[in-house]
């Protein structure tokens, strides 16, 4: 795991420019939001997530996350069918601030087109560069 100006970027994940991470777990893909995202939002008070069985599409919103001041779309990093939704985050949205990469996972998806869509995401090294860029434009 690397820290870019305080923002955590773990290895073993793929990242999207819409502040999301995915972890490939065999046939499934776990999705969440990054440390960078939760730090922009601050104290998250609400997460609206889809139900199991819903379809998600790469680069399209599948839910929302809300903090005291901000509200942000959750944008799918890959397309597929939602298999599992993190009910713990629904009842304790602050998990997204506390542990965005692990206990704060949002949905588990059966991807429909991973081979084609994966190159659209950033790997660890690219993500570190991206975070460095974000930090510089402050």
């Amino acid at each position: 795991m690397v820290k870019v100006d305080g923002y955590e970027v773990p290895e073993g994940l793929y990242y999207s420019k819409e502040f999301a991470w995915i972890k490939i777990e065999g046939e499934k893909v776990r999705m969440g939001i990054t440390d960078y995202a939760q730090k922009q939002l601050r104290e998250i008070v609400y997460a609206e997530l889809p139900e199991a069985g819903a379809e998600v599409k790469q680069n399209e919103p599948y839910g929302t996350v809300e903090s005291v001041k901000a509200v942000s779309d959750l944008v799918a990093a890959v397309s597929g069918t939602v298999e599992e939704v993190n009910s713990e985050v629904q009842s304790r949205p602050e998990l997204l601030n506390e542990d965005p990469f692990d206990r704060g996972w949002l949905i588990i998806v059966k991807p429909s087109n991973l081979q084609v869509e994966l190159p659209n995401l950033m790997d660890f090294n690219q993500a570190v560069e991206w975070h460095k860029n974000q930090v510089q434009t402050k």
């Binding site: 502040f19 995202a37 922009q40 939002l41 901000a70 509200v71 942000s72 779309d73 434009t137 402050k138």
Partner: peptide
């Protein structure tokens, strides 16, 4: 002075 930035560019990006 940079520390005084409460809403960095990423905030605007996130909220579109």
């Amino acid at each position: 002075f940079n520390d005084l930035i409460v809403y960095p560019p990423a905030y605007f990006q996130m909220l579109k």
